[in-house]
Write a protein that binds this DNA or RNA. Structure first.
Length: 338
RNA sequence: GCACAGGUGGCCGAGCGGUUAAUGGCAGCAGACUGUAAAUCUGCCGCUCCUUGCGAGCUACGGAGGUUCGAAUCCUCCCCUGUGCA
């Protein structure tokens, strides 16, 4: 799932995302609440209408901002007080408020309000963080059941109702992860996410947490690992049974000049590509690789042209979506054989 | 011709007697980015050498002299640029 925090997958327009085959993109509750405001978006028919995105949409709850806006927030049992990174104004996010905002935004999938536990976190800290996330999961669900679940405007799926996913936390402690997963499943969410990963921990640890948690989540509901990963990681996780993943890496790295290719990383800013007329990835059939050379992409980067971010992003998303498409076909093939 | 103001490393631009190979910015060269405060951040960026070290040597602040223990910084002359007046 390409990440579109502020109602845009940075540098690419919605029609391009459609042509790339993106079936679902992310938006962010905290960012859209601050600007342009969830009530404004509600009045304009919801976030699908507002940004003109006819396919599926997922809003992250703001839980990640509890983590990333560390310097600008204060966490209590009740919720989180943020100082806006835009103007310094103070805002309180509670599970109930996050639900209200997400209901107003009207994405297909809303996420429970959680606390993305930092790494490293000692046992006591992870337990405390988990306690908070569990209480918030309960409150998110109760509030959502009372006020949410309306039909969402989605051109391609007109009958779809908004659903709510719970998020597994627990730091890097397997037993905490398990306990969290079991309790969330008891609550009966529409889908389950594994959060708090790729926050600086060693990769084997990420893998272990996913491997230990995934089997506890119902197979007949979407299982989503949040915030991952590198190309080889998403393929691995998908084969392990992960249904959904999102990551800013393909888009952010693209804007910074890093292209993912079938031959590995390619930093398009490098001098060695100054007159390289070959495509970024000879094995890629995306609209960028079919038409533009490494030399041109490097030039756009050097010249700080906006098209640079756009073309780089298109390629990286095509590459990522291509990985998922191949994995999907491969898994469907295996399913058909058995 | 006269009067001011200037000439600093690829460019712009600080510094105006001593930890100054010389603050910054740009350009350049590499690296990093994992539920986006990111078109961002980090490192290198005069030359040469090596035991790669807050290492050694060399060359540098328009040019040539001078003052001084010591000068990009002060003095003299010259060259060049800008502005104003003739």
């Amino acid at each position: 799932m390409p990440v579109g925090t502020q109602g845009t997958v940075k540098a690419v327009a919605q029609d391009v995302l459609e042509s790339l085959g993106a079936e679902i993109i992310l938006g962010n509750t905290y960012h859209l609440y601050l600007r342009p405001g969830h009530e404004a978006i509600r009045r304009m028919g919801g976030v699908h209408q507002f940004i003109s995105w006819p396919r599926a949409l997922l809003t992250d709850s703001g839980g990640f901002q509890v983590f990333s806006l560390n310097a600008l927030r204060k966490v209590t049992d009740e919720g989180v007080r943020f100082r806006s990174h835009l103007d310094g104004s103070s805002h309180v996010f509670t599970p109930e408020h996050s639900m209200d905002v997400q209901i107003a935004l009207g994405a297909d999938i809303a996420m429970a309000f959680d606390e993305c536990t930092e790494y490293p976190a000692d046992r006591a800290r992870a337990e405390e963080s988990l306690r908070l996330t569990m209480a918030w999961a309960r409150r998110s669900l109760d509030h959502f059941r009372a006020h949410g679940g309306e039909v969402v405007w989605c051109y391609e799926f007109p009958e779809r109702r908004q659903s709510l996913f719970g998020i597994v936390q627990g730091g890097m402690y397997v037993d905490l992860r398990r306990e969290c997963a079991e309790r969330l499943v008891e609550m009966d969410f529409d889908g389950y996410a594994i959060g708090g990963l790729s926050v600086g921990e060693p990769r084997e640890m990420t893998l272990e947490m996913i491997a230990e948690t995934l089997p506890l989540l119902p197979k007949d509901k979407p299982r989503y690992v949040m915030g991952v990963g590198y190309p080889d990681e998403i393929e691995l996780y998908a084969r392990m049974g992960v249904d959904m993943m999102d990551c800013v890496l393909p888009t952010r790295a693209a804007r910074h000049g890093l292209l993912f290719t079938s031959d590995g990383r390619l930093n398009i800013k490098n001098k060695q590509y100054a007159e390289d007329q070959s495509p970024p990835d000879a094995n890629c059939a995306c609209m960028v690789c079919r038409r533009y050379s490494r030399a041109y992409l490097r030039h756009l980067m050097q010249a700080h042209e906006a098209l640079s971010g756009t073309l780089n992003t298109i390629h990286n998303l095509a590459f990522y979506l291509g990985i998922m498409e191949r994995v999907r076909q491969s898994l469907e093939g295996e399913a058909a054989e058995s």
